[in-house]
Amino acid sequence: MSPFTMTMLLSSLATGTIITATSFHWLMAWIGLELNTLAIIPIISKQHHPRATEAATKYFLTQAAASALILFSSTINAWQSGSWDIMQMTNNTSNILLTMALAMKLGLAPTHFWLPEVLQGSSMKTALIISTWQKLAPMALIIIANNNLSIMVLMTMGMLSAIVGGWGGLNQTQTRKIMAYSSIAHLGWMSVITPLMTKLLILNLVIYIMMTTSMFLVLILSKSKTLQDTSTLLALSPTLMIFTMLTLLSLGGLPPLTGFIPKWLILQELTTQNLQMMATFLALSALLSLFFYLRLTYVMTLTTPPNTTMFKYKWRFKSLNNTTLMSITLSLSILLLPITPLIML
Rank of each mutant, 00 (worst) to 15 (best):
L128V: 09
T22C: 09
N274T: 12
S45W: 06
T308W: 13
A52T: 00
H25I: 05
I41Y: 13
V206A: 14
T226L: 02
Q268Y: 15
S182P: 15
S123M: 10
W264V: 14
I202Q: 10
V192N: 02
I76Y: 05
I207A: 14
M344K: 13
V118T: 10
M326S: 00
S150K: 01
L246V: 08
T340Y: 00
L265G: 12
N171Y: 12
S83Y: 06
A235N: 11
L251S: 06
G166Y: 01
S289V: 11
E34G: 06
T226P: 02
M278P: 08
P306H: 12
L337K: 03
L254E: 14
I144H: 15
L265A: 12
S331W: 06
L9E: 01
L115P: 03
P256R: 10
L141T: 10
L10C: 08
H49I: 09
M179G: 13
S67R: 01
T57V: 02
L246R: 08
L287C: 06
V153T: 12
S289M: 13
M197N: 15
S327V: 02
L170G: 00
Y59K: 01
L102D: 01
M100L: 14
N322Q: 13
A101K: 01
L205Y: 08
I339F: 03
G252A: 14
T212P: 08
S250H: 07
T62K: 03
I43N: 06
E117W: 14
T247I: 09
L254D: 13
Q273G: 03
K225R: 07
K312C: 05
Q134N: 15
T308K: 12
S67Q: 04
S11F: 11
M28E: 07
L267T: 13
S333E: 03
N307K: 11
V192G: 04
I220S: 00
G168W: 01
I163H: 10
M28Y: 04
K46N: 09
V118N: 08
F291P: 00
A21S: 05
V206Y: 07
S23M: 00
F243T: 09
T37E: 05
K263T: 12
L33C: 09
L141P: 09
P341C: 04
L13E: 04
A127M: 07
S122Q: 03
S2Q: 12
N92Q: 07
F4E: 05
T173K: 09
K314M: 10
S161A: 11
